[in-house]
């Protein structure tokens, strides 16, 4: 019998060799991906997973695991099996041309031209 310092454990009268049947597949359920929103107006951000038997409990566990301190206004849970992801091996799909300045605001420098024009046209 376990003679614990912890009165709660002592009361349980646990045997030292209390072998149990091993946990079987799905004992811990499937997983849900958790998305957390800190405040209204923010994007929901993926923060991790929880194991849960259903969406309601996934929300509960998600709140306990990822929303127990700091700001939180909302969480989403999505079954992992419902998420479709691209493959890291296909990362080259994100490579088009190396030079993408034409997509950036910084790729358009008008002040040089304006200043040059002003200088040349100063009476």
């Amino acid at each position: 019998m376990i003679n614990s310092l912890d009165p709660r454990i002592k009361r349980e009268q646990i045997n030292e060799d209390n072998t149990i049947a091993p946990l079987t597949e799905m004992d811990q359920f499937e997983t849900y991906e958790v998305f957390h929103q800190k405040k209204r107006g923010d994007q929901h951000v993926h923060v991790g997973i929880v194991h849960a038997p259903n969406a309601e409990m996934a929300l509960l566990f998600g709140k306990e695991q990822f929303g127990r301190r700091g700001l939180s206004v909302n969480i989403w849970v999505v079954k992992t099996s419902n998420v479709f992801a691209s493959d890291y091996d296909d990362a080259d799909i994100f490579e088009t041309v190396p030079e993408k300045q034409y997509r950036e605001a910084g790729g358009y420098k008008v002040m040089d031209k304006i200043n040059k024009y002003k200088k040349e046209n100063k009476a």
Binding site: M26, E30, E33, H46, T80
Partner: peptide, 9 residues
Amino acid sequence: DEKYVTPLA
């Protein structure tokens, strides 16, 4: 009907 899949991240 539950099925385990490996978590994504």
